[in-house]
Design a protein around this nucleic acid. Structure first.
Lengths: 228, 228
DNA sequence: TTACGGCATAATATCGATTTTTTTGTCGCG
DNA sequence: CGCGACAAAAAAATCGATATTATGCCGTAA
């Protein structure tokens, strides 16, 4: 399996093709899609061989992933994939509702024509990938959600939202693989959000977005294995 | 000047006396108190000599600080201290108001006797240090604020709050050194917050806390140098 | 004079090896 | 039979050196 994808969260800070960058992206994807399981020990030597790079980039990538709450650093005992639990999932859901509500309203307050077009385009791309069963759907889904917040002029808040998105998506994969998502028809939810956004109706847009989160959340909560 | 202090934000993940841990704490303090200025380039070799350690721990500590939004990583051009601006300050203030409001209410909802005592004790320690001019005041001030949130059972949210606290305190130092803070009498504000918290009155406690933030914010905003 | 390109310098990023710490397994003693 | 200490193994953390990349300077040409 290949682990060289796009969708860099730290694009602003890691935009080159360095070994650290590639390692960071690869490891993040491996964790998000569940190839590296929650609680699994991340041995430097093993990863070094698996990813064909030195120990330094691995170590540095793991440090960065620690910031994303996807990896935990333990004393002098190395790294492990962050644990999952029902409680953790619910916190992520709660925070997404709170933070994206703020970000969406700010984005709407600052909206521009260019931004509206970005929203429409990102939505279209997502829909196209969804009906086509494109593997890039996940990336485009995130792109759509982040596009909604595009005019929110609060970088730290957006970083939090991005982080929380990735933490959340991980549960989708853990629940039963990515495709499970499609069992639930979210198209109209996305459409409703976009309609309200384009109309500039913050209250409705936020309500639709949170409803979308909570429906997905309730759907996923029942599928979370063991723990919590 | 010495840079070996306590107040570890990543205490849960970096609790040993490793070189990385010490370097992380030292650098964080240096940035927060303004010894390393916003935008300043962080050359590995220079820090290596200044902190008496190898390049690896430096590099790893800088990666961790990137997660705290105190350091920026640039392409293949190394690290630099995060920039400051009026806009950045206002975002931090806004986010603190939003997030601590949530966290405080949750903390109150889960309150226990033991927690109430922790709040009282941490407040007392802070007051004692304040009147005594103790250098540890800053740490105790943070401890008090975090103690208020102690029963909020949402680790990610608490991590965000802790991060934002550190980002905010940096502006206090930048404005005119730490002691400036004392020009404003915040004792009664802290007292009001605590009283409401002990009374279990979430609305009042939150209102007092946010008022505290905003007063300090308005006070500091006028002192922020150049930029933004 | 200014813009461009190449060369020297400096700094970063990465590697390989060493040191330190943790973990594991075993043996002897109670 | 269980427990603790010790030794061996594994792993993490760190170091020193090398390779790679950016930066600044200078000369040349338009």
């Amino acid at each position: 399996m290949l682990y060289n994808f796009s969708n860099p969260q730290n694009e602003a800070t890691l935009s080159d093709g360095s070994a650290t960058q590639k390692t960071y992206l690869a490891l993040r994807k491996m964790i998000v899609i569940g190839d590296l399981k929650p609680g699994e020990k991340l041995k430097i030597e093993g990863l070094r061989q698996r990813l064909g790079t030195g120990a330094s980039p691995i170590r540095e990538a793991l440090s960065l992933l620690t910031s994303d709450n996807l990896v935990e650093r333990i004393d002098q005992r190395g790294f492990r994939v962050s644990l999952t639990s029902r409680k953790n999932f619910e916190e992520i859901l709660m925070l997404r509702c709170e933070l994206e509500d703020i970000a969406l309203r700010q984005s709407l307050a600052n909206r521009t024509q260019d931004w509206e077009e970005q929203v429409v385009v990102s939505h279209h791309r997502m829909v196209r990938a969804q009906v086509g069963g494109d593997a890039a759907f996940e990336d485009l889904h995130k792109a759509f959600h982040m596009a909604l917040l595009g005019c929110c002029d609060a970088p730290i808040l957006l970083k939090f939202c991005s982080q929380l998105y990735d933490l959340n998506i991980r549960y989708r994969y853990l629940a039963s693989g990515a495709m499970n998502y499609k069992q639930r028809d979210v198209s109209h939810e996305h459409q409703n959000i976009m309609d309200a956004v384009i109309a500039g109706d913050g209250d409705t847009a936020s309500a639709e977005l949170l409803s979308h989160f909570r429906h997905t959340g309730a759907f996923l909560a029942g599928l979370i294995p063991q723990q919590g």
